[in-house]
């Protein structure tokens, strides 16, 4: 186990809506070690992306602690926050809307350097931009192109280059490949792995695609309705999922083998609304093991040994 780089403690992010409080991220805790990747999976709207953004304070968290290198970054003032963002960056999901259409590739990658006044001279700045472009595999001839002239894979490389320009240690990857087609996905994922080895990066990899998460993660956390319900290293998660939701989720991964048979767990019902959720387990309405206690008491994320954590009353 490496050193602990990031520690998230009881992170909460609520949004005010007309109907009431929307609990997008509700009491989420996890750690990430230096040089490792935590895969955060869950279905749409479960709060994965909000978690990533709350850690970087793009959306200010409602409550909780984010401890980075032994300091609670949520207490940072404006200047310190700006310095912090040099170490922590984010790559967005949609390479079409995450790049300002008015800026050229050079300007897009140079923007973070310019904002943080890293380089004094123009030549240093452009050298760094070119260096980063090489790093992510963008051809130099594209330096004056605009994003709309490029394909999705190249655009996402720009997004990665922009995040890397400031030499961060930690990157939130917010579904970086879900907008790309499969062969480009593989390219980008390999690039991520290469960069992680080369630069010693630490990732928080957010995705809804389990096969992608499996490919990159050391530890996987499963989110459901704003809460982490299961957290474990990727091997045991896939071999022996504990939480009934994880079991259903994993049974949905297609098996690339002709004639392969496997038991599919089909979930019934829908995800309950995250607005003013009632007490009890969020999975109550869809769980086949449910009992009365599930309705009354919210299960906590408990250590069940071997570094595995599950939030269910019946998993011990």
């Amino acid at each position: 186990m490496g050193d602990r780089l990031l520690e998230v403690r009881n992170l909460k992010k609520y949004f005010k809506t007309k109907e009431g409080m929307l609990h997008a991220v509700d009491d989420v805790s996890f750690n990430i070690n230096k040089g490792e990747t935590l895969g955060l999976v869950g279905e749409s709207g479960c709060g994965k992306s909000t978690t990533g953004r709350a850690i970087l304070r793009i959306h200010e968290p409602t409550d909780g602690e984010v401890i980075y290198n032994n300091e609670n970054i949520l207490k940072y003032d404006k200047n310190k926050k700006k310095k912090m963002l040099r170490k922590m960056q984010i790559v967005f999901q949609d390479p079409y809307s995450s790049l300002n259409p008015r800026l050229s590739v050079f300007d897009l990658i140079a923007d973070p350097l310019y904002v943080n006044k890293i380089y004094k001279t123009k030549s240093e700045l452009s050298d760094r931009v070119k260096e980063v472009m090489d790093l992510v595999g963008l051809e130099q001839r594209l330096i004056n192109s605009y994003p709309h002239e490029l394909d999705g894979g190249r655009r996402q490389r720009i997004g990665i280059a922009r995040a890397l320009a400031l030499r961060p240690e930690f990157i939130v990857l917010d579904e970086p490949v879900s907008a790309l087609d499969v062969c480009i996905q593989a390219q980008i994922l390999n690039l991520m792995n290469k960069l992680q080895e080369q630069l010693g990066l630490t990732y928080l990899f957010i995705s809804h695609d389990l096969s992608v998460v499996r490919h990159v993660s050391d530890v996987i956390a499963v989110m459901y309705l704003g809460k982490i319900i299961e957290l474990s290293d990727y091997k045991s998660m896939f071999i022996d999922p504990k939480h009934p939701y994880t079991q259903a989720l994993l049974s949905a991964i297609p098996v690339p083998k002709v004639g392969a048979k496997r038991e599919r767990i089909i979930l019934e019902g829908d995800v309950p609304s995250p607005v003013n959720p009632p007490p009890g387990c969020g999975f109550y309405g869809r769980c086949k093991y449910r009992e009365d206690i599930c309705k009354e008491k919210t299960p906590e994320l408990l250590n069940i040994g071997e570094g595995r954590y599950v939030a269910c009353h019946f998993v011990k």
Partner: peptide, 12 residues
Amino acid sequence: EEFVEAAKATGS
């Protein structure tokens, strides 16, 4: 748009 969030994330 996401590029505005991206700008926030770089400390603009």
